[in-house]
Structure formats: C-alpha cells, structure tokens
Design a binder for these strands. Structure first.
Length: 280
DNA sequence: CTAGGTGCCTGATTGC
DNA sequence: TGCAATCAGGCACCTA
C-alpha cells in the first residue's frame, strides 16, 4: 500500500511530469472517489486550470493549481496516479481522468475505492489534522519524545495514527520498530530517552532508504510510480510479510500478531522487551 | 484518554 | 473443478 516513500516518489515524478501542464477536462467515473466538492462541480471547476507544483504531505499528494486552489489525492489502499501519453484506454479501475491540454491523461485508478480526491481553496481543512512529517527538518528526537510522553497506547497503533505522525503505514511502522529493536506492544510512555532517539533514527532511516529505492512493491501488489514502474525496496524489508522467515539479525522466525486488527510483524528476540529492564 | 468495533471496497486466498 | 466465504487494510466514525 502506498505510504510516505511511495507518495514521495510519486509526487517527485508528478512534479517533473506535470508542472506547467493545464487541465482540459475532467471525467469522474466513480463519484464517491471525489470527497469534495460534488462530482459535477469538480468536473466543471477544474477545467483550464494549470498545475503549478506538486508536493507531498503525509500520504497526500498535493497539487497547487493556478488560482491558488489545491488538489489533494489520498491513494488509500490501492490507488495509483498515472500519467499516460495519450487519451488512454480507461480501464475498469479508473475513478477519475484528468485530460490535459497537451493530450496526455492523468489517471486516478483505484481498484479498492479507498482513495479520495479533494479540490479545495484551503488544503489545511484536510491537512491541518495531520501530525508532523517525520522527514521534516522541524521534526527532532525531542519532538518525537513529546508525542510519546504521557501516551499509554502501544507504539504500533501510535505510529499508525496520522494525527500523531503523518506518513507511516503498516509496512514502515513495522520496519521502524524492528530497526529500533522495540516491541510493537511497548507502551509509548515507557521509552527511555535513548530508545526515543533510536526510534527517531530508525523511522528516518527506514523512510530515506525506501525513498532511495523508489518505494516498496510487494510481489502480489500493485504500487506503481507515475509511469507504471514498480519500486525496488522489497529486498530491504526485514519483518513485513516475512512471517516465519528467519530474522536477518538472529535467525529467530518472524512472528505475526494482530494489534488493533492490523497485521504486525516483529522478531520476538530482537524486539522482545515489553518493559524497561527486560520483564516480559 | 484508551480500547474496541463498524463500514467502506474488491482482488486474492482459503475452505469445502 | 468451482463456487462461496474470508481476508487484507487506511481511515472516519461510533461506543463504552
């Protein structure tokens, strides 16, 4: 599923491909994919607008348009944004098609229909709820410590909460906890300052490596960049989707448990400590 | 604040 | 073989 590294890769590609392009017309094929405004207004209002820049915030792709409005795309579980050379054969998973003045098509394809597109004058209406971006310069170990302190919730659900930290999903939350040698059920407020520091380093390093590899495309899965290419970060995963396989560090089989109904992968030996001092 | 549940969805997998 | 049931998961929203 697309998380911060995949969305970052996509946003960089789209910036290169779309900056300066103008929208000729918009076709909404599945109206529920458009969160706001209503589909007919979305189709009418976006005509002739120019795409000035494309960035990322958390897991949102953010497109700045002429007239200072903003198009946000959340890919959900299975969304893609593809730039196609022509009008393109719109397959059955196409939810919104943006026909560009230069003849290309920006396709929002989303089999599972969990993705959403927003057209807003003020993107903060949606983005304002997000916590800090873990790769932002403003994000420091001290800031992470502040987010964890006083929270009795387990680390795994906390890392997935976009209001706390924006951009981690199931893959990179598990990978970050492995890299930091922290058990996913450890209560957030029990971390020592050294452990906070190592979690901070782990999150940033896991995300940076994944971006360097242009994101993770699982064997079965579907993540593709703006030009349809898969990412190559799969070989970098240490725990996610490696249930029963030996830990790269100690050889112990990787375990999968459910935490808040989400599959959670970890090494029971490397990440074994549930409490400070090693009490289980 | 925290924990747990539901609904939204459909391709892939599992079960009989 | 073939069909039906189950699973996967990001997120908003609800209840206790």
């Amino acid at each position: 599923m697309p998380e911060l590294p995949e969305v970052e890769t996509l946003a960089r590609d789209l910036r290169r491909l779309l900056r300066g392009a103008a929208i000729e017309s918009v076709q909404v094929c599945w109206s529920r994919s458009v969160a706001t405004p209503a589909a007919d207004e979305f189709e009418r209002g976006l005509q002739q607008r120019e795409i000035l820049d494309v960035t990322r915030r958390g897991k949102f792709v953010q497109m700045y348009l002429s007239d200072s409005t903003c198009l946000l795309v959340h890919l959900g579980m299975s969304g893609h944004l593809l730039v196609e050379p022509g009008v393109g054969a719109l397959d059955s998973h196409t939810r919104v098609a943006f026909h560009l003045v230069d003849g290309r098509t920006l396709v929002f394809s989303d089999p599972r229909k969990f993705g959403r597109v927003f057209w807003l004058a003020d993107p903060e209406r949606v983005l304002g709820r997000l916590g800090p971006d873990p790769l932002d310069d403003e994000f420091t170990p001290g800031r992470l410590g502040g987010l964890l302190s006083g929270r009795r919730v387990a680390l795994k659900p906390l890392l997935l909460d976009q209001r706390v930290l924006a951009g981690l999903g199931n893959i990179y939350a598990d990978e970050s906890l492995f890299r930091a040698h922290l058990h996913p059920l450890r209560k957030a407020n029990t971390l020592t300052s050294g452990e906070v520091e190592s979690l901070y380093d782990a999150i940033r390093e896991v995300l940076r490596q994944a971006i360097h590899n242009r994101g993770t495309t699982l064997e079965d899965a579907r993540y593709r960049d703006a030009e349809g290419r898969p990412g190559r970060n799969l070989a970098n995963l240490n725990v996610y989707h490696r249930t029963g396989k030996p830990c790269v560090c100690c050889g112990t089989p990787i375990v999968r448990i459910l935490v808040g109904s989400r599959g959670t992968h970890f090494c029971p030996r490397c990440q074994g400590q549930l409490m400070v001092g090693g009490i289980h």
